[in-house]
């Protein structure tokens, strides 16, 4: 019995490529941002962001092109459960914040800064995307 199968080797190889692409993108992006800020050269900042996006693109491309799943089933489940937990936290925040901020504004007790309304809007958008994704996934599985 081989200690490491081809699937595991391929998975590891693609994960390394993905992480390298993302890591390089982040490091070079930060370097570009710092260089642009310190030297007061906007092109460096733009170049840094461009390289960062390329790194992210590389990450996605390697993941997409990998001939095997880059995560095994337990890792995929960990990811799903973490995502579920995140959505639960977001939902709790939305449930508390949306009516709470509305009451504060309507009663005039406190003038809620725009930032918080932006946050609530973002949470509501996430909830809508989850709804659509859920509907789409249910159609696929039914």
């Amino acid at each position: 019995m081989n200690e490491t199968s081809n699937v595991l080797e391929t998975r590891e190889k693609y994960r390394n490529w993905m992480n390298t692409a993302l890591g390089a993108g982040i490091v070079l992006g930060v370097v570009g941002l710092l260089a642009g800020t310190v030297l007061e050269r906007d092109p460096f900042v733009v170049l840094g962001v461009g390289v960062y996006w390329l790194g992210v693109l590389g990450y996605v491309a390697f993941k997409w092109r990998a001939p095997v799943d880059v995560r095994d089933e337990r890792e995929a489940r960990i990811n799903r459960e973490a995502a579920e937990l995140t959505l639960d936290v977001f939902a709790a925040l939305l449930i508390v914040a949306a009516p709470g901020l509305t009451v504060l504004t309507v009663t005039g007790v406190y003038e809620v800064p725009e930032f918080y309304w932006g946050m609530v809007t973002m949470l509501a958008l996430v909830a809508m995307v989850v709804g659509v994704a859920n509907w789409h996934t249910e159609r696929k599985r039914t």
Binding site: M1, S5, D72, R74
Partner: peptide, 28 residues
Amino acid sequence: LSQADLAGAVDVSRQTINAIERDRYDPS
């Protein structure tokens, strides 16, 4: 067999075999 041997044979990570053996994860 080591956990790594078995993991390699069924295409999952050693950690996954370890988690199954410790009843921390139910396999598909």
